[in-house]
Design a binder for these strands. Structure first.
Lengths: 159, 159
DNA sequence: TAATTATATGTAGTTAACTACGTAGATTTG
DNA sequence: CAAATCTACGTAGTTAACTACATATAATTA
C-alpha cells in the first residue's frame, strides 16, 4: 500500500474505508470468540432500540443515520433472528413500530461485557497523539459548516 | 444520528464509513463541476500508474492495498474508458502489464488543478485540533503492533 | 525431468450500503 | 370536503468492495 500511503490526503476516503473494514472484520471475530452470534452491522439498530425501546422504521433510520431502505433490510435480518418484533401503529396505520424481543434484550445483556472489552481496546488503539474519534467529530463539525464540495466550489471551478 | 453520535467509540466503524462516503460523493461532484469525467474510486489505480508507469495487476493491487479481483474490476472500467491499456509480459506469460494511455496521461494533466483544490479543501477540513490524517496513520501503526481482535483476545474471552 | 508447489490472473457470487421509484395512509389547502 | 401534497414504508436494482474457487504458467524439488 506504498503509493496510497504516500498519495496523502487525496486518498483519505480510501484510507477511512480500509480502517473501517478492518475494525468491522475484527469486530465480527470478537463476537464469535466470545460465543455471541451477532454482526457488527446490527449494532446501530440494536443499540438504538436498547436506548429508545420503541420506534418506527424511519425514526430508527434517522437515529442511526442510514437511509430507510438500508434500515429495512437490517430490520428484516433482526426479525429473522427474532431479536426484534414489529407491530402496526394504531394511531397511524402507515407506521410500523419496532421493539426488542425478550431474546434481543437478553442478548444485549450478554453482550455488555464484550462491549466493555471492545471499548477498552478501541480506546487504547485510538488513544494516540491525534485522537481518531475526536478527529472524526471535529471534521464532521467542519463539514456541517461547509462541506467538501461547497469549499471546492468556493475556490474553483478552474477556468 | 443522535444515538450513533452518542454511542461513542463502539460505532467508530460506522462513523468512519459514513465520513468516507460523504467525501467520496463530494469528490464525484467536484470532478463533475470541473468538467472532468472521473470517478474517485479510480484514483488509487490511476495515481499509482502515474508514479510507476508500468505494473502488473497484482503489483497494482498490492500498491493500492486492494484485493486483486477488486483491482481487476477497476482495470476493466479504466480500459473501457481507454485511460489504460495492457499487454502480456513476454518474460512471464502469466502477467499482464498495465500502462496509462495518452488519453490517461492527458486526463491526469487536466486533473492536476482539481487535485490541488481538493488537497487544499481536505487539508482545511481536517486541519483541526486532532488531525484526521495523522490520527489514521497513528491508529494504523497501533494496529500493526497489535490489532483489535488480538487486543480483545488478550483481555477476554469473558468466562 | 516429472511432480509438486507457488504465483498471476480471472470468474462467480456475496455484502452492506446506496438511489430511484411506487403505493398507501395522513395532512393541508383551495 | 375533494384535491393536492407529504410522509412512511417497501421493492428493485446499483455499487464498490470482498471471499472463494478455477486455471494457466513459472519455479522448485525429489
Amino acid at each position: 500500500m506504498n503509493v496510497i500511503d504516500e498519495s496523502g490526503i487525496l486518498a483519505i476516503s480510501t484510507r477511512l474505508q480500509r480502517l473501517s473494514d478492518q475494525l468491522r472484520k475484527d469486530g465480527t471475530l470478537i463476537y464469535k470468540a466470545n460465543g455471541i452470534d451477532f454482526e457488527p452491522k446490527w449494532f446501530p439498530v440494536i443499540y438504538t432500540l436498547h436506548l429508545k425501546s420503541i420506534l418506527s422504521v424511519v425514526e430508527i433510520a434517522s437515529e442511526i443515520g442510514y437511509t430507510h431502505p438500508s434500515t429495512i433490510s437490517l430490520l428484516k435480518e433482526l426479525e429473522k433472528e427474532k431479536l426484534i418484533r414489529s407491530k402496526r401503529d394504531k394511531a397511524d396505520e402507515r407506521k410500523r413500530l419496532i421493539q426488542l424481543t425478550a431474546k434481543g434484550q437478553e442478548l444485549i445483556e450478554r453482550m455488555q461485557p464484550v462491549w466493555k472489552i471492545m471499548v477498552t481496546c478501541l480506546t487504547d488503539l485510538t488513544n494516540t497523539q491525534n485522537n481518531l474519534m475526536q478527529a472524526i467529530i471535529e471534521v464532521e463539525q467542519q463539514m456541517k459548516r461547509s462541506g467538501f464540495f461547497e469549499r471546492a466550489e468556493r475556490i474553483g471551478p478552474v477556468t
